[in-house]
């Protein structure tokens, strides 16, 4: 399947649909990242309503512009990961680390435990924090954060 032929759009309002060229149509499409950590923003798989793969697009940028917008909207809904923009406060006490962060989804408090397992270093600057409930908080590039945030991160990790 050629990515440029994929028309993705919402219809009705909350359901992502897809038509391929003239002949094929999928009433429900779920976009999922095939390798979100090692290849962020690449390898987007489209699944049908039953969870079977329809196709995988190596580079989603090659989708038609309108389709890309629709897919991005759906991805934002499906991946509830929050991108940390600023660490307001972080402190380790008695084996638990308490965080207050500003993210692309707003401010949030969370707790992490056992950071050896729950802070994954995806690269020397890219960190994924998983809180005690399984919620995810991502720091895409810690060097891009303000000094104060970086100090918190350095002190804790």
């Amino acid at each position: 399947m050629n990515a440029a032929d994929l028309q993705l759009f919402y219809h009705p309002k909350d359901r992502l649909r897809m038509t391929v060229g003239e002949d094929r149509s999928y009433p429900t499409v779920k976009p999922v990242w095939a390798a979100p950590l090692s290849h962020p923003e690449k390898y987007l798989s489209l699944l049908d309503g039953k969870g079977d793969e329809i196709t995988t697009i190596p580079d989603p940028a090659s989708l038609p512009a309108a389709s890309k917008v629709a897919v991005d909207a759906e991805l934002y809904r499906r991946y509830l990961t929050a991108d940390i923009a600023q660490v307001i406060h972080a402190k380790t006490e008695f084996g638990a680390t308490y965080w207050t962060v500003d993210t692309n989804r707003g401010r949030r408090d969370f707790v992490t435990q056992n950071l050896q397992e729950n802070a994954q270093w995806l690269s020397p600057v890219h960190i994924m924090l998983i809180d005690v409930d399984g919620n995810r908080f991502e720091i895409t590039d810690k060097t891009a954060l303000d000094t104060k945030s970086q100090e918190f991160i350095a002190a804790i990790l």
């Binding site: 307001i88 207050t100 500003d102 707003g106 401010r107 949030r108 408090d109």
Partner: peptide, 9 residues
Amino acid sequence: MPDAPVVRA
């Protein structure tokens, strides 16, 4: 954003 309320679940 700094003044946004802290969301509690």
